[in-house]
Simulated assay, not measured.
Amino acid sequence: MHCDVISKMLQSPTIQFKDDRRLDVTLERLEQGQVKTQCFAIYLSESLGKPRFEHILHSIDVFHRSVLNHRKMRFIRSQEDWVEMEAAGDQIGALLSLEGVDGLEGDLSYVHLCYLLGVRLIGFTWNHANWAADGVMEPRNGGFTRKGRALIEQCEQLGLIMDVSHLSEAGFWELAERSSKPIIASHSNSQTICPHPRNLTDDQIVSIIRRGGRIGITFFPPFVRRDSSVSIDDVLRHIDHICSLGGKSNLMFGSDFDGIDQFITNLEHPGKYDKLHNALARQYSSADVEGFTYKNASIFLKAALPLNS
């Protein structure tokens, strides 16, 4: 449910999606790991300068030219796209998300344009404050601005899936109050297991569960364990804890590949997903493993995506 392939391509135009070792996520590795769907984030690096809407448009163009130009990749914008992708059997779904609304420049008409161009998930911030809300690393821990609250309303009207990863805790609770729809944390773990600000408190996790949302376990070592050596077993500790809070049907995975520079042993790229699957199978039933690795996300998306493109 989260990778930063597009951001890398935006900064290095020579990178190829098919089999370029400068990427963690490539077509071959998705096939090797039997990945059925990958969500590609639009993240505007500080190296681009002041975030502009033209950077978002350029990112979407890169997505089409470099990712969707491969026959196996299927753009997922609607419930029909999802059903057809599943029926085809040999296709890999490609979702498009916006990580941080800085590049929308405070113009709500750009939100509608992003939706028309196929963006289906939106995260309001990266780690810091912007025109809409405070990020999780903003010291004042503020919520949404007036224009940010209008953004929530527009996302609700359009049917954009709202993502709380990177959002401040105050922003989380304000969104929970103002939104009537399920929300997701595309790439966040449990703060109880690993006390990092980017992880979710138990109260936040329970809130997402009760709303029928989803939590994408992420593989960035500092979010998994406060240690220099992190293993797949440490990832399972987060899964165990969220399950203990009633979230067995709410779990999915949001690797953050291509947005991280540290890796879990035997989980360095999607081609290694068999190692994660095997570890899960030793501890959980086949139905649970199917839920974690695919079905939980599939059920959610088939309900949350619009009826047509």
Rank of each mutant, 00 (worst) to 15 (best):
D4K: 10
V5Q: 03
I6E: 00
S7R: 05
S7F: 00
M9W: 09
D24I: 04
V35L: 06
T37Y: 11
C39S: 12
R52N: 05
F53S: 08
I56R: 02
H58E: 15
D61R: 15
V67E: 02
L68W: 10
R74M: 12
R77H: 06
S78G: 10
Q79K: 15
Q91M: 13
E105N: 12
R120L: 04
A132G: 06
A133E: 01
G142T: 08
G142H: 06
T145W: 07
R146H: 10
R149N: 01
A150N: 05
L151T: 04
L151M: 14
E153W: 07
E153A: 15
Q154S: 13
H166M: 09
E169W: 03
W173Y: 15
S180G: 14
S186C: 09
S188W: 02
S190H: 09
T192R: 14
C194G: 07
P195C: 11
P195D: 13
D203H: 09
Q204K: 07
G212I: 09
I217Q: 01
T218G: 00
R225N: 04
R226I: 08
S228M: 08
D233R: 08
D234N: 12
L236F: 05
R237D: 08
H241Y: 13
C243Y: 12
S249W: 01
N250W: 00
F253Q: 00
D256I: 00
F257K: 05
D258A: 08
D261M: 09
I264K: 01
G271L: 07
K275E: 14
H277E: 15
L280I: 08
S285C: 10
D288Q: 12
V289P: 08
T293S: 11
K295R: 15
L307F: 10
